[in-house]
Nucleic acid binder design. Structure first.
Lengths: 142, 142
DNA sequence: GCTTGCGTTCGAGTGCGCTCGAAGGCCTAG
DNA sequence: CTAGGCCTTCGAGCGCACTCGAACGCAAGC
């Protein structure tokens, strides 16, 4: 449990520290390293249409700063529980051009509400855990 | 997304309103109704050892107030992302008696930290979503 | 020239947490 | 007496999001 969260936090730290200068070209391994998203998952995301990545010399993927930004954004949405299905829809809308901005906005606003509700729920359940801890007499929080 | 959360919130409202008086006996259907946990899932939880339910006349499950409390508690832990595996461990400890209280406490405290981290992460990602909404110019929050 | 190491594709496998279907038992109402 | 409805068990199936294995390609270094 803690390990999972630590992985997520590590990822955030990495992403902050690893924004590539625009114009930079990254290999898949470098992207994995900088975004904290595995090589396997990067390829998977591409397969299902979340990413469209340019190819270089030997057919190898070449990621740009924009790809980095997208992966990080997708990752944030995933962190908040947006299902892959919706990510695909969002990306499809981006692909359709500026006229889909209102719909994208609507998606994000709906999602924001969902995340807020999720936060409320989590805080509520946390209270139950804290109550139980208190009931066991262990209120030795750091 | 929103639907999922609404389901969860409905469940919480239900659980609050549906605490049985102690001594009450509930059928599986009533438990499902009151806890918001499906009949299928209640049986599943029993199968994997999270619950031990008494049987009545025709071999039917008979749930008491304590079972209700446990289901609600398990449900809260699930809401915070505790995996089934750990629920089983916790329940096993409960079954072993009072001397396992320290270990249970340790589990809960570790879990509390995980939930707090999860909250922080969620808030962080929410900020990203809000930033994006602002970038799209849609700051028409309710 | 041959190993090392990175990359490629494709399809299949994994783990989780349910969710469901089939086949049948018991009880009550019409 | 029979139909409906709720219950039982068991094993299988599902949706999600990865995750991995197999088989192969290219390019640099010893």
């Amino acid at each position: 449990m803690t390990a999972i969260v630590d992985v997520a936090l590590d990822r955030l730290r990495k992403q902050d520290a690893a924004v590539p200068e625009s114009g930079a070209a990254l290999t898949i391994a470098e992207m994995a390293e900088r975004t904290g998203v595995s090589v396997h998952t990067l390829r998977y995301y591409e397969r299902i249409g979340l990413l469209t990545v340019a190819r270089g010399a030997a057919g190898h993927r070449v990621y740009g700063a924009d790809d980095f930004a997208r992966v990080v954004f997708l990752n944030r949405l995933r962190m908040t529980g947006m299902p892959i299905r919706e990510l695909r829809r969002y990306v499809a809308l981006v692909g359709e051009g500026e006229q889909t901005v209102p719909e994208r906005l609507a998606m994000l606003i709906a999602h924001r509400e969902a995340v807020r509700a999720q936060l409320a729920e989590l805080q509520f359940a946390l209270a139950t855990v804290e109550f139980k801890i208190a009931a066991y007499g262990g209120d030795c929080a750091p």
